[in-house]
Design a binder for these strands. Sequence first.
DNA 1: GACAAGATAGCAAGCGCTTTCACCTGCTTG
DNA 2: CAAGCAGGTGAAAGCGCTTGCTATCTTGTC
Lengths: 329, 329
Amino acid sequence: MELATIRDVAKRAGVAVSTVSRVINQSGYVGGETQRKVLSAMRELNFQPNRIARGLVSRQTSTIGLLIPDVANPFFSELSRGVEDAAIARGYSVLLCNSDWNPNRENMYINLLNGRWVDGIIVVGSRSDISVVQQVAAETPLVMVDRRSSDFEFAVWTDNRQGAMLAVRHLLEVGCERIVHIAGPMDSPSAQERRRGYEVAIQEAGMEPMFLEGDFRYASGFELVNALFQRGDVVDGIFAGNDLMAIGALQAAANLGIRVPDNLAVVGYDNIPSTHYVSPPLTTIDQPAYDMGYSAFELLYDRLSKDSPTENQQMKFEPKLVLRESTRR
Amino acid sequence: MELATIRDVAKRAGVAVSTVSRVINQSGYVGGETQRKVLSAMRELNFQPNRIARGLVSRQTSTIGLLIPDVANPFFSELSRGVEDAAIARGYSVLLCNSDWNPNRENMYINLLNGRWVDGIIVVGSRSDISVVQQVAAETPLVMVDRRSSDFEFAVWTDNRQGAMLAVRHLLEVGCERIVHIAGPMDSPSAQERRRGYEVAIQEAGMEPMFLEGDFRYASGFELVNALFQRGDVVDGIFAGNDLMAIGALQAAANLGIRVPDNLAVVGYDNIPSTHYVSPPLTTIDQPAYDMGYSAFELLYDRLSKDSPTENQQMKFEPKLVLRESTRR
DNA sequence: GACAAGATAGCAAGCGCTTTCACCTGCTTG
DNA sequence: CAAGCAGGTGAAAGCGCTTGCTATCTTGTC
């Protein structure tokens, strides 16, 4: 069955196309009787305005692009929910783009989104060359999440450095004397900041920093910690760059018969749901993923709806230490 | 900076608009020299064809809608990745829609997507009135995931009944004598099928079925099992309708000092990543979420690219029992 | 009773692209 | 040598909608 167009509706209702358009958009003057006729013609034909055509003339699509590394990662999937809930509340849809942490794929998506396909873009945890992102930002409103830069006016972020320091200081408080950091990949800005926070806090305590570089995935936490202990290194505290790697570390320790928290204290980062139910439950640094996503959209929406730049352009969330069994002593 | 249109490119290259269009689409005849001029004009103006305008005339958007209950649920986020990876490989983008298990929200999205916004739709785990969904299916190609119905020609699914029977028979094998089922919500078709499978397997064994109805979320598993044991019911096996509820059950048992698997065996459903690292690791029924998503897109793509209906319209995946510690005896 | 202002509706010009059709050139054919 | 055809290009007609402009008809006001 061919779909009805505005022309069909107009014909059926015996009015002009522009009149139908007015009742659809509730703009301009339309008489009561006319409106009724149009409405019922619309219903009879099961008319749905073509969003594409509409987008062409109005120059907006009520769609935004969400570019994240990986929805299958709990932190990002939670954040996505926040974005989507905020978007739907304002009548927007979201186009999902997984970069898989791959700068090429990220660039490809950025270019794709740039083709007047979306009204705005939210980029989360980007590792791309900042100039590419900026080029887009010149043409399409963009909000950066989790990567602060003086170059982006619109951003939501948490103080990763501060968060890392919270984690390390906590490990020190519970008496750790040799704390290793399982860092995220070094091309990730937030991984870098966390690493820096770790370094500062460790040096404050007069200790020697020690890093292992993972990739933010479960397996890398497992393997790095496994190798670490196999080598016979003496370590009594681990601060992982995210929860997934921390959980990997927990597993590796359990396999080797190392008792957590007694012989090894572990702290993660993100506070994903699994941290509740691993054994032992994981102490971690909370990042309010859902709220960050929600706010990112709101920021974008502000930018989209007002011509003048908003005053509220940056939104900072505070990382919080969440105490659980993995560091209880 | 105003974005360049195809007209600007044509003017700069000193050719007609139609010629530019030909080089963009690599269709028709274009001379070597002309092509070079157009290409360089495109580059100089940083031209990107407007996808909206293009969509209007070509009647396709290279975008599909993905309607799922909740991306924050690991099963669905994994499935989403599958869909997205398959889509990108074919040059498609995906519009993410979370229904939150809410039929109203689901209908709203279905209507939205129906506005010629997407070329096709993948609906996962729908609980909506089937007639609404079908009405869309008449206008937009649609693939159903996890809900089989003779009414939908295109579907990917697993045999939930069979999966549930696998789970229950396993519990019987390890010696359980009183097995309760924590079911998913009864308006979910897959929850119903699993429940039915449980029922059949239990009756085969000459036992009495016993149900509790949850909502597929962690908290409901926790609370139901907690209440169950608080009431003093004697139960030595639990088959949960999904892993999240099973993990909740595990936690409740741990809190009450009930030892798993010794005094209580637990089986989940889905095989989400967390099942590896809960304690004890959870025996579960594997559903290949990623592959299901991937296949769902491929099915849709087939349908989209060929006019004639494909032969391969249904795709069935086999549920598999995954043995872990939570039932080891 | 004349007239400005408000209500109501139609006409037509695009939005940026694709695609048909017509037209040109220069060769190959029977 | 007329006809046919592949190669190359442009003009123009839309795709389905919004919107500025115009034309008509009601009102209310002095």
